[in-house]
Simulated assay, not measured.
Amino acid sequence: MIQVDHLTKTYGGFTAVDDVSFTCQPGRVTGFLGPNGAGKTTTMRVMVGLTLPTRGQVTIGGHDFRHIPNPGRHVGVLLDASAQHAGRTGREILALGATTMGLPSSRVDQMLELVGLTKSEAKRRLRNYSLGMKQRLGIAHALLGDPSVLILDEPANGLDPAGIRWMRGLLKGYADRGGTVLLSSHLLHEVELIADEMILIGNGRIVAQGDRASLMASRVGTASTLVTSLDNAALSAALEAAGHPVTPRAAG
């Protein structure tokens, strides 16, 4: 389980994440949705100890990530598929991870086969990988320690349609076996096809969350849209004249 409790992260006068709270449950895929710059990556970096929160906290299985012994055996992480030594081969990258986690070398072959990287591709250096191959290698590294939690930031980037379908099946099967999956994306359609729960973030704040059925119902029933213009008073008048209720947003 991932528990995010009133998380806030500021950089000087800029608030990247603003009082965010949500829970990711075991056995479910949670989609973390929002445009680029919405606060998704910052939230995930706090989750795995790469960024310190200004306020609030994140726990995984009840523990701060930094206090989990051998964290790769408990939490699989993919934040940047290119964040490995470009001169190492795919096999070397996984072998180093296996050694660090105290895993047998056979685990490397299992993961390469799982993500569909061939023997020849595993011998190539990371600098010669396509983005899709880097994503597959990153997913292999996240799964290397057979963790109970996966935190994946935009893992579909660079994958072709067949690769995206493969990833959906992989993550759904992982959740069906009891794993907790947090999957970020800026593409609602892709996440709708796999996520059991969805969390929508914009400008650092949670704007909606719930399962697919409740969010779809809200679209049809009481959905709202935040809009702004150079003349908000004129925009409000035009919308109300067209029969659309308008609620002014408080400043700040």
Rank of each mutant, 00 (worst) to 15 (best):
A213P: 00
Q84I: 10
L230I: 04
F14P: 00
R125V: 11
T8E: 12
D80T: 02
W166S: 09
P147C: 05
M133K: 04
P104W: 04
S236R: 13
G116Q: 12
A213I: 07
A233R: 12
R205A: 15
E154G: 06
G158D: 14
G252M: 09
A213N: 07
N128G: 15
E240R: 15
T59E: 09
A95N: 03
S148K: 14
Q25S: 12
T100R: 10
G12I: 01
G173K: 10
S229F: 11
V77E: 01
G39A: 03
A175R: 11
G202L: 12
E190A: 02
A175Y: 12
L187A: 11
A241N: 11
T42S: 13
L230P: 02
A140P: 07
F65M: 05
L187V: 14
G169Y: 09
F22Q: 07
V17L: 09
G116D: 08
G62I: 03
I201Q: 11
L117R: 12
P71K: 08
P161S: 13
L144M: 08
T180F: 04
L193T: 13
P147F: 01
H141A: 15
P53D: 10
G12S: 01
A251W: 08
P26L: 12
M133W: 10
A175C: 09
A213C: 02
G61V: 11
S218I: 13
H67D: 15
A162L: 14
G202P: 00
H6P: 01
L52R: 13
R205W: 06
